[in-house]
Amino acid sequence: MNLVQARRQSWNIGIVVLVLILGFWRINQLPQFGSYEARTFILGILPIALLSMGQAVIIIGGGINLAIGAEAVLINCLSAKYMAGTSFTTSVFLAFLFIGIGGLVGAITGWIVSASGIADIVVTLATSFLLVGVAMFVMPQPGGGINQGVADLIGGKDPNFIPPLIWLILPLLIIWIPLYRSRTGIAMYAIGSNKDAAFLSGVNVNRTRIKVYAVGGLFAGLSGVVLTGITLSASPFATISSTATLNSVAGAVLGGVSLAGGVGGLAGPAMAALVLYFIPNIMLASGIDPAYSQIITGALTIFVVLVGGLLRKRTGKT
C-alpha cells in the first residue's frame, strides 16, 4: 500500500465513517427509526445521488457538465407531462424512453464538445440554458403526474423502503459495474487521466467522450424520472437545475472523484449524497437554521477540492 492508494482508500473509508456518524446522529434525533424513516432518507437522496453519479462519470472522463441539472429537469418535465393519466405499461414504456432521451441529450452534448473544440464549461453552460428552455416549453407550469403503480414501483408504497433502495443500487449494478469492467470503461478513465497515453493505447478519444456524456445523460434521465415518481409532478425552474448541478459537482468531488479526471468511482458520490442530505436535516432537528447547511456544503466542497489538490501536488501529479 503506497501513498496514492492509501489516500484513495482513506478517502473512501473517511466518507463511509462520515456517513455512519451522521446517520447515527440523525437516527438518534428521531423518536424512532423504522422502515418509514429509512424510506424518507432514501427518497431524500435518490435524485441527487443519481445525478452525482452521472456527473462523476463525466468528471472521470475529463469533462464537466453544467447542464446535468437541466437534463434532469427536462426529463422530469417530459415524464410528468406524458405519463400523467397513462396506464401502467405505457408509463413503464415512457420511463425507459425518457431515460433513453436523457442519454441521447448527453451524447449530443459530448458530440458538440468534441466537434467544436470549445471548453466543456462553455458548451454545457449554453446547453443548460437550452435544456431549461425546452423544459419550460414542454411544461410551462409546475404540474403533471405519473401512473400511481409506476410511482409505487419507484418510491415504494409507504413504508416500503425497498423499491427506492433498489433504484439507488440497481444502476450501479447494471450500468456502472459492467461498464467499469468493459474496455469502454477503461477508455473513459484513460481519456480523463491522459489523453495522449489513451490515444497511444488505441482509444478513440472523441468517441469515448461522447459515450461518457451519454452515460452521464442516462443517469440524469434516471434522476429525472425518479423525481417524477417521488414528487408525482415536475417543476420547470432554472433554479432547481442550477442547484442540482452544484450539488452534483459537490457530491462527485466529495465522493472522491478528482476534478483533474481519471480518478474515482460511483459509490463514493452516492455516499456523498447521504452526507449532503444528513447535514441540513440534523441541523434542522437540532434547532439550527438549516441555512447553515448551505454554508457547510459549500465550505465542504471547497475544502475537499483544496485538500485533494494539495495532496495531488505532494504526490507529484500535476
Partner: peptide, 20 residues
C-alpha cells in the same frame, strides 16, 4: 517510448485490458 504510454491513474491490470 521514452515516456511510457500507460494510463497514469489506472491499474496495470486495466492498462493491459485496454490494449487487449
Amino acid at each position: 517510448f521514452q515516456d511510457p504510454a500507460l494510463i497514469p491513474d489506472v491499474s496495470l491490470q486495466r492498462n493491459l485490458a485496454l490494449t487487449g
